[in-house]
Design a protein around this nucleic acid. Structure first.
Lengths: 112, 112
DNA sequence: AGGGGATATCGACAGCCATCGATATCCCCT
DNA sequence: AGGGGATATCGATGGCTGTCGATATCCCCT
């Protein structure tokens, strides 16, 4: 961590508090990219509002009006970003919203 | 607004609450896209942590390590998304974070 | 009026991404 | 074992986007 005084000296910008670190920006941007898509926001909302808080791909394909591989792709993006949890039960894959995941991102958004 | 019962009948998905509307998803995704970039998160943070809560382009070019047109482009994206306010004072353009803009997006993220 | 500095716009280019059809994989049931 | 259904992966494609240099615009100062 570079001291605030050194950063001021380095870039000449008068700071009143520490700006977000570059690493934090990269990581947060990666998670926000997963959310910054209408289809994925819709999928997230559909899963969250489903009975039991979970849904399988076959339930989601028709509401979003996209082909099955596309829906599967979006669910993978959301899962890789830590927003959805995947639970395989027999031939079906059930997806549920990871508790607190959205809140954590929202908190990082407003904290700085 | 389609009643919840009708939506259940239409898509067969058992819902326990209303999912996010498609229009809301499109609008929120548009704003999140503006945030889903490391450079723009860094710029936002740099502006917010600057003395007086504002900074001009010439102050931001060096900290982010990008060319002036690129920084200007990112600031325009953030301004168009309602996250930054532009104030022209003489030859300089000062940018400041719009109060409550980030909080509003964070709130929409967790509300559903 | 003219010159110099700060910012915005333009055109181009490379890389990423959403989407699809086709196909592969996996699981259950008979 | 084999068939059928649910899901994941692959390859291709069109569109979007981050980046830059060059240029235009605007403002101040002399």
């Amino acid at each position: 961590m570079i001291p605030l005084s050194d950063m001021n000296a380095a870039c000449g910008l008068p700071l009143v508090k520490e700006p977000r670190s570059a690493d934090d920006a990269v990581d947060l941007a990666r998670r926000l990219k997963a959310l910054a898509d209408p289809t994925r926001l819709l999928l997230l909302s559909l899963v969250a509002s489903s009975r039991g808080g979970e849904a399988c791909v076959c339930d989601l394909t028709e509401p979003v009006g996209l082909a099955q591989p596309t829906v599967s792709h979006h669910l993978k993006v959301l899962t890789d970003a830590g927003l959805l949890a995947r639970d395989q039960r027999g031939a079906w894959a059930y997806f549920a919203v990871v508790p607190g995941a959205l809140d954590a991102i929202a908190a990082r958004l407003v904290e700085a």
